[in-house]
Each structure stands twice: as C-alpha cells, then as structure tokens.
Design a protein around this nucleic acid. Structure first.
Length: 279
DNA sequence: AAACACTCCAACCGCTACTGA
DNA sequence: ATCAGTAGCGGTTGGAGTGTT
C-alpha cells in the first residue's frame, strides 16, 4: 500500500509554529471547519504539511483545550485507565475533556510512570515491582536518551488486550471522528485479533450495556466511549455533560469500564454482546 | 558565572485502518 | 479484490528551560 508523502518535502516549514502560522490556521478552521487536512495548508496559505496542521490544531490550538494543571483526580483516572487500556492515549484522553492524547502521553512518560515506580509499581504492567523503588538518580556522566532508559528496564511479557477498531455510527458521524478502539480480548483468549463490529443504532437499545462514540467531547474531535444503561446514542453530548470533572463521576466512569472489561473477560458474554452489535 | 545534566513537551515519524474508486 | 489517498494513533526526538555542581 502506498504511503502518502509527508512533510519532509522541500519547501515546507517544520519545527515550532510561529504566532502568525497559528493565527492563519485558527482563522482558516474557524471559517471553514477542520478536516481536509491535506489540502488545508495550501488553501490556508500555510507552508506546512497537512499532518503538521492537524497536530497543531488538535494538540494546541483547539479552543477547548485545557493545558497543564492536571488534577489529582485526573492523575488517578489516567493511572487506572492505563492499567485497563495500556498505552491507548487517545482513548484515555477521550475520557478527560480538554486533554489531548499527546498531553496525556507526555504526562504519563514524565510524571506518572515515575510516580508509579516510586510507589513500587511497574508502570507498564501495574504490578508490584520486586526491587526497591527507584531512587532519585544522581547526575549521570553520560546523557542518556529516554528511549535508552526505557530499554534499560527488563521487558516483561504482558498480555495486553488486543485492540479492535469499531466502526460506529458511520452513517451519522463522520469517519474522522467515528473510529474508536476497544480492548475486546485479552491476548490469552484472543483468537481473532482484529474483528470489526458494526453498531447499528437500532440494536443498541437491546443490550444492557449501551455503547457508542462521541465526537462531542468539547468539540475536540476526540474519541469518547461511553457506557451506560439505555443511554441514547444520539444524545452523547448530554451524556458528556453528566460526566463533569468531579471525582464521583470519575469513579462512576471507572466502574463502568470495569464492568465492560468483566463482560469481555467472559467469552460467551462477549460473543453475545458482540453479536448484538452485528448487523 | 560557566558548564554540564536533566526535565519537559511540542513536533515529527512511521505505521495501520478506513474509505472510495 | 485491489489500490491510492487520507486520517489518526502511538512512539520517538530535539531543543528550550531549569537545576546542579
């Protein structure tokens, strides 16, 4: 499969965005909406590749983005969702309105993984570490890249759930915002790794666990999965409003995730659940 | 004050999934 | 069924800023 050429091509700007570029991109998107990233730079008068524009908008310029000040509740939720979902940053970010996958990923790598390690927990597996928590390192003679640091720790075989991509409500939500991934099978039980499941609206009412996607997470284009009893898929935005930032709702959310995963751990129930979603 | 070490995060890269022809 | 184009995701990097010696 051919790959689209990217921004390393001559004549395009790279590196940090200037205020002028930001302004151009913002103005263009406010006028025309996001999407068509490939042709956007040309029409917006930017010497950037579409990919770069998309990233800049998604991670920095979107008006609803919260930056910094990650609360202890968010901290906690990120850690627990990571224990369930692994490095599924976009999914995790989707549960934290105003947060981007990139921010969550960076925050995890710079703060939370250390925090867990210091608490004696393996940030990859969320298991207890056998060795003592890493002490604050003294100065190193040779600068090491973060990747090398990561490689330094013993790789543990982890049975992370295999992601599946679910095509959801394709008829009413544009593709760009409608895909999400679900951890459906742990690797120990996974036999079919990448099964696509349709989610016809008509069927969703018939299962106790109603699921769907939201492209309304603060208009951030992020992907949110929501689970709830008999929740109307069409009203995902109102559902999001119910899930404000307070700790109780985060707890509730977490419980719902656990509920889902419990279902998934039981193949029979999963099958019926999946079957109910199939056309 | 200077040099070095370390942290943080914006941006990039490479890949996969999806769509439509 | 195949292919090309596109969007999105997660991993990685580069460099500015900060801390330490």
């Amino acid at each position: 499969m051919g790959r689209a050429p990217c921004c390393s091509k001559v004549g395009l700007h790279r590196g940090p965005w200037t205020p002028r570029e930001d302004a151009l991109l913002t103005k263009y998107i406010q006028a025309h909406g996001k999407g068509q990233w490939r042709s956007l730079p040309k029409t917006a008068g930017l010497l950037r590749c579409g990919k770069s524009c998309r990233l800049r908008w998604m991670n920095y310029l979107r008006p609803d983005i919260k930056r910094g000040n990650i609360t202890p509740e968010e901290d906690d939720l990120i850690i627990r969702m990571h224990s369930l979902l692994g490095n599924r940053w976009s999914l995790i970010a989707g549960r934290l309105p105003g947060r981007t996958d990139n921010e969550i990923k960076n925050y995890w790598n710079t703060h939370l993984s250390k925090k867990l390690r210091n608490q004696g927990t393996d940030p990859n597996t969320h298991d207890k570490l056998t060795e003592a928590p890493e002490k604050k390192k003294g100065r190193k003679k040779n600068k090491q890249k973060s990747t090398e640091n990561n490689k330094g720790s013993e790789k543990t075989l982890v049975y992370l759930p295999k992601p599946i991509r679910v095509k959801a409500l394709s008829s009413c939500i544009p593709r760009t915002d409608s895909t999400l991934t679900l951890d459906s099978n742990s690797a120990t039980t996974a036999s079919t790794s990448q099964e696509k499941v349709q989610s016809p609206e008509a069927e969703t009412k018939e299962v106790n666990m109603v699921w769907g996607v939201s492209d309304n997470i603060g208009d951030n284009g992020g992907i949110g999965i929501f689970f709830g009893e008999d929740h109307d898929l069409v009203n995902s935005a109102s559902y999001m409003e119910c899930y404000s930032d307070d700790h109780d709702t985060l707890e509730k959310l977490y419980e719902e995730y656990l509920q889902l995963l419990n279902v998934e751990e039981k193949p029979d129930e999963l099958d019926s659940f999946a079957q109910s979603l199939l056309v």
